[in-house]
Simulated assay, not measured.
Amino acid sequence: MRVMIFGCGYSGQAIAETFKTEGARVSGTARSTEKAQDLATKDIHAFVFDGSAFSNELLIELREVTHLVQSIPPGKEGDPLLKLLARQLRELCPKLQWIGYLSTVGVYGDHGGGWVTEETPGSPILGRSIERVDTEEAWISEGKGGGIPVAILRLAGIYGPGRNAFVNLARGTARRIIKKDQVFNRIRVEDIGGAALFLAKREMEGIYNVTDDEPGPPQDVIIEAARLMGVEPPPEQDFETADMTPMARSFYGANKRVSNAKIRASGFQFRFPNYRMSLADMWSTGRWRG
């Protein structure tokens, strides 16, 4: 496999590490030379891509790519990669066998704490999630036009080494916001890598929720992390009166439980199906620091 990951950030690097375990040659893009150099230190063939144009070096690489992962979020003007491909997918990537697009469970919107599946119609309430729905459809259309399977990975709240409740507690930035009956799903970043590899190896297409088994109140994660650290959790703060940024507050506007039954039924097994075992793993190994 020759894999290209557009937007090789936190999730993209986890995907890269997982593909490398299969002997894949992995390339990735970053927006700056400095970030590209950082990718190179991690045995990722790095290219600078800011969404404006493909470099000659990147065009040469694309001709050899067999698996493509798009992790760059769309803007108000759509997906920057799709704009450049412009129905030239087969011409630019003649060896391409599979595409993975990283989306979000935010496309489902608010369901009052009820369960949603891949069959649930999207009803996003935030602008960035609305853009995701349009981009999902555009990638599926692009794939059909080139005869290439496209898998949409709808991701829950991402956490893992370096980005977790332990880090926030250690920094003194953890907050225990209480909103009645609010639940969230989450996903350990290594499981994103595992799901991408699973779908890619089988050239599977369609929409898949990539999320843990147990949607739950966000404050419970903080309490469990504090218990493992042996520290006091931060005091409770009522959602209605808490001082929060508009962005942070907006996340609480969508309350739902997201099912991962479809990808499980396909045969994928999560390494970290719930936050308790995941936190215990990070704490016992020290990997929480990143």
Results as ranks from 00 to 15, higher is better:
L102D: 04
V3Y: 09
P73S: 07
I140L: 13
V107Q: 02
Q88R: 15
I148V: 15
V133H: 05
E34K: 02
D238R: 11
F6C: 15
A14D: 08
M244K: 09
W98A: 06
L228R: 14
I207G: 05
A200T: 15
R128F: 10
A226I: 11
V105S: 13
K179D: 07
F6V: 15
G28I: 01
P161V: 11
A170L: 14
G162Y: 02
K262Q: 03
Q88P: 00
I130H: 07
I60S: 10
G230E: 09
A254I: 00
A225W: 08
G253C: 03
T241H: 04
L39F: 10
E224I: 03
V189C: 06
L199V: 12
L126F: 04
R31D: 15
F166K: 07
R163D: 04
Q97N: 14
F19C: 08
P218S: 08
P218I: 09
C8Q: 11
Y275K: 10
Y159P: 06
W139I: 12
H111N: 14
I72S: 04
D134A: 09
R249E: 08
T211L: 12
D191E: 09
N168A: 12
A280I: 07
V231E: 03
I192M: 08
A86L: 06
T173S: 14
K76N: 07
P80I: 07
A138E: 02
T135Y: 03
E34V: 05
K256W: 12
F272V: 03
I125L: 15
L89S: 11
G51A: 05
V69G: 06
L228N: 09
R63I: 00
P233S: 01
G145S: 11
G7C: 11
A261P: 05
R154I: 06
E91C: 10
D134I: 04
L58H: 06
F198K: 05
E57Y: 03
M1L: 13
R90A: 15
I192Q: 04
A280W: 02
P273Y: 07
G114I: 00
P273R: 08
P235Q: 08
Y10W: 13
I15Q: 03
N56V: 04
A225V: 10
R287G: 12
L89T: 13
L199I: 13
F251Y: 12
I44C: 06
F198E: 04
E64K: 10
R90L: 15
R175C: 00
F272P: 01
N209R: 01
E232A: 15
G143A: 09
M229H: 07
P80C: 08
A226V: 07
D38P: 00
G127C: 09
G109T: 03
A261C: 06
R154M: 04
P94A: 08
E118G: 14
S103G: 13
Q70P: 04
F198C: 00
W98C: 07
